[in-house]
Design a protein around this nucleic acid. Structure first.
Lengths: 205, 205
DNA sequence: TCATTTGATCTATATATCTATATTTTTATA
DNA sequence: TATAAAAATATAGATATATAGATCAAATGA
């Protein structure tokens, strides 16, 4: 494995991890098969440009050819734009997974009983929030209430919405929605004039 | 041909031209076969990283993966380091070719007759200058006297050094040498604190 | 423990790459 | 200007290797 290949492999792997993506998830985003990604990250292949560009696009990295004499300046620019995200890499990864589980839980909620309409409305609302949350940038203080809501959500996942528990369940769901709504209302931001923590669009370290 | 591939192809071609290299010369420098370079520049192949890195190394370009949000800043850095070399690309290419022809002419000068020693000395001297000129950077005003010397040199290439023309020929060669010596004396510079025009190590536009 | 997820490996196929040759463009000379 | 010579670039066939798709083993979680 050449030095350049190794360097690229490390960069790609670090970028993927910093976004909390698995090889399969990155595969889905980039169109590059998971098996390739494995080999690429292990530096066992001399990959083609099209693969590198596809992976780069999914990781918000762009391939550039820069004159040698500008390399120090370029490195400096890149470094200065990477905030302390590295410290939070694992946290971001975990938060992402929590979000995905919540999404799945919401989708799979039972839809029977007289609360059908009200529950459907709740589902749509939560789904919209999740979508927003996944597509915008969040700062750590904004993440916390959402994470708390997700934790609360877990307690419902095996309940049905009918019978004697209906009132209690709906009440808790209502609280959930309010928590989520509050979190989401604080969260959405357009692509960051300020320093921001990203879920789908973060820098690598 | 994808956009990214096309962009890379154009960048490589522009960089090669700006150094006045032919595909064959670049091939020799980079180890990439000339036939590939042709296909790469025409965008008919999805080249591998090893090829791109090899070509980049020969052209003083480094492959980098930069976060998307830093691209404008990086472009700015790269642009600001590229002086007005583009305007002179053709001139640099032509000058390089002239130098190479002169080198060949000098090497092939006939070595018979009583002036053997003196001619040999002249040859060595000119060859040393050519070597220096090819390895250091020159500014346009420094290039001119050398170019004039090359033009003058042309008139000798079919002459022998013996018989009746000896004196005249040697006199002219002497002038040549002085011109060259003067040009070379002004020329050598170490890798440029100031803006400089390069023969072997120039930026692309 | 069982189910799911993650990363690695295997095979068939597509395609880049290498060597050699052909074509097109440039340069020099009559 | 016409033409020969040389240089520069493009193409063709054989081979090496990346890639797509399926499968596997280890780790993780309920």
């Amino acid at each position: 494995m050449s030095y350049a290949t190794e360097h690229i492999a490390n960069t790609l792997k670090a970028a993927r991890k910093s976004k909390g993506l698995s090889q399969r998830e990155l595969s889905a985003k980039s169109g590059v098969p998971q098996g390739h990604i494995s080999k690429i990250e292990n530096g066992t292949v001399d990959l083609r440009i099209s693969s590198l560009v596809a992976l780069g696009r999914a990781l918000d990295l762009e391939l550039m050819l820069v004159p040698r004499k500008t390399i120090p300046a370029v490195r400096s620019v890149v470094r200065s734009s990477a905030h302390g995200t590295l410290l939070h890499v694992e946290g971001i990864r975990q938060f992402r997974k929590e979000m995905e589980r919540l999404e799945k839980t919401i989708d799979d909620l039972p839809r029977d009983g007289q609360s059908k309409t009200e529950l459907a409305h709740f589902q749509r609302q939560v789904q919209r929030y999740i979508h927003e949350i996944k597509n915008f940038k969040l700062t750590p203080p904004e993440i916390e209430p959402i994470r708390a809501a997700i934790r609360a959500m877990k307690t419902f996942k095996n309940l049905t919405i009918d019978g004697e528990r209906e009132r209690q369940t709906l009440t808790q769901l209502q609280n959930m929605r309010n928590e989520l709504a509050h979190g989401a209302a604080n969260a959405p931001r357009i692509e960051a004039v300020r320093s921001a923590y990203s879920l789908d669009e973060d820098d690598y370290g």
